[in-house]
Design a protein around this nucleic acid. Structure first.
Lengths: 128, 128
DNA sequence: ATTATACTTGCACATTTATGCATGTATACA
DNA sequence: TGTATACATGCATAAATGTGCAAGTATAAT
């Protein structure tokens, strides 16, 4: 039962994933793998794998729309899970400030709140 | 800065240590390595090492009294640290119930709230 | 002084985990 | 029908981690 909880702790105990999860909390929105790549600078396979690990750990939800895969913060019912998320939420934002602002820029490229531009696009490299 | 936080997550992301930390939270008292061994059934070196890892991660405090080393819950000032501890505190106690009751039995062997009996004593093996 | 006790730690070994690369799958588009 | 795009994943390698054993240090007891 708390093997799952330990999996969640393990999932968060890695810098790239902690940053991704913090981002998902603070952007308060679903994001695609492509957007995560652009915002964090992670490689395609690492962005994909790390989001999946957070999902498998029960921290994110996943939804596929066409060729895009959106991840977003999972709602937590259990107190210890909810509190764990709150702990990450209250991390000092200084450390992630740049990621947050870059994410806003990236989300501004959406159309009707849907991701329409792939990773490492010209438009993004210019904007960044 | 949040390297430390990641170290704390790593420290908690191991079953033996999570159990030890949960115990330190719920027993609301300092305990020695010997007592931790008896209560958890961990080997001497693992009890020692795991408590030290929790201490180094900033989750416990350490104090040596004679040949005994006491560990106890560290007070947390920072919100994300405090909340992390609260998350572990609210873990369902079912999973750790037996450890908690065994710890009470072990602490009952103290004199003036000081540990005076070493690990794997006759008295403990009988009591257990 | 010597011995016992509580705890620590270096070492070897096995398991796990992170990463890059290459390739595979699914969907969209021409 | 073929090609481009978004994402996933098997494999090999390197790094990190957990564990047992044996030996170490520090304090207490005799």
């Amino acid at each position: 039962m708390n093997e799952n909880y330990i999996d969640a702790l393990k999932a968060l105990a890695e810098p790239h994933r902690l940053r991704l999860f913090w981002l998902l909390i603070h952007v308060d929105q679903r994001i695609t793998v492509a957007e995560a790549m652009d915002v964090t600078g992670d490689t395609q396979y690492n962005a994909s794998r790390n989001l999946k690990i957070l999902y498998k750990a029960g921290l994110l939800t996943q939804s596929k729309i066409g060729k895009w895969v959106y991840y977003s913060l999972a709602e937590q019912e259990l107190p210890h899970w909810h509190t764990l998320v709150e702990s990450v939420r209250s991390l000092p934002s200084d450390d992630f400030a740049d990621v947050a602002t870059r994410c806003k820029k990236r989300l501004a490229m959406r159309v009707d709140n849907e991701c329409v531009i792939g990773p490492n696009s010209e438009a993004w490299l210019k904007k960044k």
